[in-house]
Design a protein around this nucleic acid. Sequence first.
DNA 1: GTGAAAGCGCTAACAT
DNA 2: ATGTTAGCGCTTTCAC
Lengths: 359, 359
Amino acid sequence: MASLADVARLAGVSKATASRALSGAGEVSPSTRERVVSAAAELGFVASSTAASLVTGRTRNVGVVSPFVSRWYFSEVIEGVEEALIREGYDLTLFRVQEDPSRRQRVFDYFLVRKRVDAVITIAVALSPDEVAALRALGRPVVGVGGGIPGMSSLQIDDVAAARLATEHLLSLGHRHIVHLGGDQTEQMDFHIHSQRLAGFRQALAGAGIPPHDDFLATPLTIPGGFQVALDLLGDPRRRPTAIFAASDEIAIGAIMAAGRLGIRVPQELSVVGIDDHELSEMHGLTTVRQVPREQGELAVSLALEAMSAPAPETRDVALPITLVVRSSTAAPPERTTLPRESHGHVVRAGADLPDRDA
Amino acid sequence: MASLADVARLAGVSKATASRALSGAGEVSPSTRERVVSAAAELGFVASSTAASLVTGRTRNVGVVSPFVSRWYFSEVIEGVEEALIREGYDLTLFRVQEDPSRRQRVFDYFLVRKRVDAVITIAVALSPDEVAALRALGRPVVGVGGGIPGMSSLQIDDVAAARLATEHLLSLGHRHIVHLGGDQTEQMDFHIHSQRLAGFRQALAGAGIPPHDDFLATPLTIPGGFQVALDLLGDPRRRPTAIFAASDEIAIGAIMAAGRLGIRVPQELSVVGIDDHELSEMHGLTTVRQVPREQGELAVSLALEAMSAPAPETRDVALPITLVVRSSTAAPPERTTLPRESHGHVVRAGADLPDRDA
DNA sequence: GTGAAAGCGCTAACAT
DNA sequence: ATGTTAGCGCTTTCAC
């Protein structure tokens, strides 16, 4: 527990000089520097970041606020953030924030506020006006990954375009009966992502002259969630689409598993597209819109750090490029299911043509 | 940015009294307390944890060292730790540590050392003697989840017993040809877990009078890893076992997917057991030894906190109970594959009996 | 029950 | 290039 004073004494210099020699700030003659450095080494001196923070007001620590750590998108963003942060000499303090209002409030009013973080990065979390105010009151850069919040920098893919891209791919293959398995709009941690993906989906449909219909199912953004909802959907021959656009790869994979359970072959009888491009997506042969969460995390750190040194911390919104990764989960729709929509409700034989999965 | 002095002034008391009133330490008359509290509220005062730490030496922050954040086991332990920590009013600082030696050193010699953490929790990370020394030098409680390190408290399931349990289940079903898909012993973040699971596996085999043979395959602890290794193994009729014991559910699920790819039916033609019990395991009908990582995380926090207040920070090793969760992925071995082992190499027709998966 | 004062360990003017 | 001085914002003896 050697202190700077100990080091200074051993090196025969003042604390100020010792501090300068060790931190690299200010001019120190090479010889003194060396004396100080070796004295520090001898004593096993490590600067107390607490003391340094108290005087400088900087903590070299950034807070990351995320609703999950285990879901793909979130864990990868976190890994990206961590990577970039440690490279820059920053710690990462993790705050998991879910719906529970009392816990949320605790995080925003107590934990984040204690002058412990130099910046905050939020990951796809929908903030209430109060929460935004609390964050802004920190007087520190705040950047949101996965969606924009008024008054703070943000970083995301263009979710409308991503959804449109996915849907147009399906349309171009000839699909006319596509269902969107997407996030529940009312979920607290929504964040417009869900609604934007739905909007892009509908835009593409409208562009192809397909009138709005019963084409959206609120789905938990997990593999089991996608599985369950798809099982219901695909199990009913009358509702069964030829293609599914899922809001996340987890949903998409759940849907593929459901199809497998029902004996529906992918992609011959059902095309599936998701958004993310996790390693499992590759294994499932899932067609997906790639969104590189890791890079989003790293970029968020750049934005935050940049804002810290900027004179006027102007907010910036950055959109990352997207690409469609076509794998084996999409194909032209099977002939038999391209019956005119109108027939679905009336002509029972249209459904009966399909293998009956209800049994 | 109101300071304690501001609050004290507004309340008409000294800083000392204000501090006592706000922190709850020491006796303060109810009326003064109320005056101070409302003054604090009026000013939006939040104590600077930095300043408090400087004087108390406590940071209300614990460091978590983990090689991954995205793998099941790790992310769930982290969520458990986070949950318990925030409940107790602690922050969680995350350090991801992988093989890269320079990064590791940075974490241990620079980040963790700066008097920033009251305790450290490591998650299944194999520490070098130097690293253990560095941690111990902190003079703070260190608890290891997922394996024991000499000189620090630890928390884990009994990995030998878990592996034995899984293997004995397979043996009791009549399997004689079981292969263990387990972690590479040489991997840096091993931690004896892999070797203990292998040991338990071999113990069970020995107990059943099955001589050691070519029964272990080093496998990355991921779904793609399990998939790839199982694909090779199962694709060769001569090597194909009737059962697989996987060191993790991720491997196990990869193996099930590989079987699916090869047209091998689970469990009729192949039994699979893993360790973990993630929600996906349930979906795959995977038989597994349950290890509740979330609880491991919460318990680690209790241990750490307890050690902080203990006069003599004695180390404790705690083993969590395990249970075998039997789902549909295990069954008695098919008749045709119970040929005597000796025939595998010589009687080509024994292999030819099986569907040829090489093509 | 409350106040005065000391100081945690460092950095940042300001001198020299 | 180096030393002196003054705090950063709290908690905690020690008096009263």
